[in-house]
């Protein structure tokens, strides 16, 4: 067991957890933030993506104890009183059906928009599709997710 402290969605969180606790288990089972999903055992589906110190990571492939001192944002921390522009874009563009992959898609999307903006690169359709390599959706066929991210990116730029 190890005592681990981190900031999750702006709030301090502290707990004594077994060393083999995955970050996603800590988020879902200790903090009860169940918006972050687990869709696979092989680190391939991206349903568990959260931001750790501002970067998208798969919380099923990270240990809670290794995230000591980290600043973590989950899907619950994205909305700030009202929906985040990327969430609005997913809603308006029908970027989801069952919604299981959506938290990971939205966290991946906001990360890619921020990175492309910072590096001055253009986030065109081809770039969005290649950036979605690590996120699997069983329902939508991706087209509306890609549209939602393009729309979300322009909403984020103007918000």
């Amino acid at each position: 067991m190890t005592v681990v402290s981190m900031t999750v969605n702006g709030k301090a969180a502290r707990a004594d957890v077994p060393d083999n606790t995955l970050l996603v288990e800590y988020i879902r089972e200790h903090l009860r933030l169940t918006g972050t999903h687990v869709g696979c055992d092989t680190s391939q589906c991206g349903a568990c993506v959260v931001h750790v110190n501002g970067k998208a990571v798969k919380s099923c492939a990270a240990l809670a104890v290794a995230s000591e001192g980290a600043d973590v944002t989950t899907i619950e921390g994205l909305a700030n009183g009202e929906m985040h522009p990327m969430q609005t874009a997913f809603k308006e563009n029908h970027g989801l059906q069952c919604g299981f992959c959506t938290p990971g898609m939205v966290m991946t999307a906001t990360d890619m928009v921020a990175r492309y903006r910072e590096s001055g690169k253009t986030l065109d359709e081809a770039a969005i599709r290649s950036e979605l390599e690590g996120n699997i959706c069983r329902c939508t066929g991706y087209h509306n997710i890609v549209k939602a991210i393009a729309d979300g990116a322009s909403k984020m730029a103007s918000s």
């Binding site: 680190s43 998208a56 492939a61 990175r115 690590g134």
Partner: peptide, 9 residues
């Protein structure tokens, strides 16, 4: 290599 989240770690 892999995808953006894998490349971050």
């Amino acid at each position: 290599i892999g995808d953006p989240a894998v490349r971050h770690m």
